[in-house]
Amino acid sequence: MKNRAGVYRSSLSGEARYQSFVPSPLPPSPPLILDENMVNLLVAAHRSLASLESISSRLPGMKPLVSLYLRKEALMSSQIEGVQATLEDALDPMPELHAKRDVTEVANLIRASEYAINGLKTLPLCNRLIRETHAILMKNACGQESAPGEFRRSQNRIGGPGSDLSKASYIPPCPEDMERAMSDLEKYLSRDESREDSLDFLLRAALIHYQFETIHPFPDGNGRIGILLITLYLMDNKVLTEPVLYVSGFLKQNRIEYYDRMTEVRKKGNYEQWARFFLTAVRESSRDAISAIDDLSALHEKNVRVIDGLGRARINAGLLFDYLEAHPIIDIGKTAAALGLSYNAVASAAKRLIEAGILAQTENEGRSRKRNRTFAYEEYLNILKKGT
């Protein structure tokens, strides 16, 4: 049965027979129906996003926060795919002391995100950049089937662990159809002002994310790349100047609905219900980010006043405090090297911040109490950890 989202292709025969989905090229035909509810959601999403963009462009010290939010997004996006890691794991200054595969996967996504965002300065958002980003994401991944940086050459499926094609909840397009679909998607990603559809960029971002997840072009890592694609598309089209919109928290909290709504598009061609869900995600994610930035700004101002009252100790304490806002979990030795100060100077500054209630020593199993100690800016972390 055909709907405007695509058709099913039958493969093999007998008990081995299965049906893979072949998505129709974007934009949908007939076009999206923009009813009053959709328009209201679109306006609200843009208003919230514009407020977030305004704050991020004028707030002093926003660059370190953007970097930290990139790490939080990598964590949340990875958690959606079952990665077991915490924000503390992602920010650990000494990961080599307790390296875990899940932490490595989050670190890879952070590097992949940074690579892709920087790549937009010299490349359009295209399949080449997507593949190169995937290669970084899947570096040192377990199993040859991960095929870093390569589109898959075999049929994949979505389902529970150990499920075969006959029991899969969804079977993406076969490799031949996948290659064609990714070529069509690349054309839709291009910033062609002469294109026939005049859809708003947020609605296009919704369609692009759905389409990528439906195509599922890689053996592994599709979910993480698909979420990153939202930010990349909006930055490539100048809707965002900094990567400050992160929807993975909303998608994680509403994970079942997230999957169900994409399934509804494939089954019935109902793009509208997916678009409304996506716009809600943008609106709520923008509001959450604004709230967090407000809380972090208030915390910053409070602690700056505390440090200003430390007399002569305020200079090194201030340097360490600035460093903490980009690295809220620190090791004294590495921090001393980064700041160009002696070990004792940083240790003394850390002691002052502990006495002021800004910094706290963390509990680390298997580490010496004197060596390899780490310290955390806990109030700051608690704000960042919301939703994780």
Rank of each mutant, 00 (worst) to 15 (best):
residue 2 K to E: 14
residue 6 G to Q: 00
residue 8 Y to Q: 10
residue 10 S to M: 14
residue 10 S to T: 15
residue 15 E to T: 13
residue 17 R to L: 15
residue 21 F to M: 04
residue 21 F to H: 06
residue 27 P to Q: 08
residue 30 P to Y: 06
residue 31 P to D: 08
residue 33 I to H: 14
residue 34 L to I: 14
residue 35 D to C: 05
residue 38 M to W: 05
residue 41 L to I: 03
residue 46 H to Y: 13
residue 47 R to T: 14
residue 49 L to A: 08
residue 53 E to F: 13
residue 55 I to P: 07
residue 57 S to T: 12
residue 60 P to E: 02
residue 70 L to Q: 15
residue 82 G to V: 09
residue 85 A to S: 13
residue 95 P to Q: 06
residue 96 E to F: 03
residue 98 H to C: 05
residue 99 A to P: 11
residue 106 V to Y: 00
residue 108 N to A: 04
residue 110 I to K: 10
residue 112 A to I: 03
residue 115 Y to W: 04
residue 115 Y to M: 07
residue 116 A to C: 05
residue 117 I to A: 04
residue 118 N to G: 11
residue 121 K to L: 12
residue 128 R to G: 09
residue 132 E to S: 11
residue 133 T to R: 09
residue 134 H to V: 01
residue 147 A to R: 15
residue 151 F to I: 05
residue 153 R to K: 15
residue 153 R to S: 14
residue 157 R to V: 01
residue 162 G to M: 01
residue 165 L to T: 05
residue 165 L to N: 08
residue 167 K to Y: 03
residue 170 Y to M: 02
residue 173 P to Y: 06
residue 182 M to C: 12
residue 182 M to P: 09
residue 182 M to R: 12
residue 186 E to Q: 12
residue 191 R to A: 14
residue 195 R to D: 07
residue 201 F to R: 10
residue 202 L to I: 05
residue 207 L to Q: 03
residue 212 F to T: 02
residue 214 T to D: 03
residue 215 I to R: 02
residue 217 P to A: 06
residue 218 F to Q: 04
residue 227 I to K: 15
residue 227 I to H: 14
residue 237 N to S: 09
residue 238 K to W: 12
residue 239 V to L: 05
residue 243 P to H: 02
residue 244 V to P: 09
residue 246 Y to G: 14
residue 257 E to F: 11
residue 259 Y to A: 08
residue 265 V to A: 03
residue 270 N to F: 00
residue 271 Y to C: 07
residue 272 E to L: 06
residue 275 A to F: 10
residue 281 A to L: 07
residue 282 V to C: 12
residue 282 V to N: 08
residue 285 S to N: 06
residue 290 I to Q: 12
residue 295 D to I: 09
residue 299 L to M: 05
residue 299 L to N: 07
residue 302 K to W: 01
residue 302 K to S: 13
residue 304 V to H: 00
residue 310 L to N: 06
residue 312 R to E: 13
residue 320 L to N: 04
residue 323 Y to M: 01
residue 324 L to K: 05
residue 325 E to W: 11
residue 331 D to Y: 10
residue 345 A to R: 08
residue 346 V to R: 03
residue 347 A to W: 04
residue 348 S to M: 08
residue 349 A to H: 09
residue 350 A to N: 03
residue 353 L to Q: 05
residue 355 E to R: 11
residue 360 A to L: 11
residue 363 E to P: 00
residue 368 S to H: 12
residue 377 Y to I: 03
residue 377 Y to M: 04
residue 382 N to M: 11
residue 382 N to Y: 11
residue 385 K to P: 08
residue 388 T to E: 15
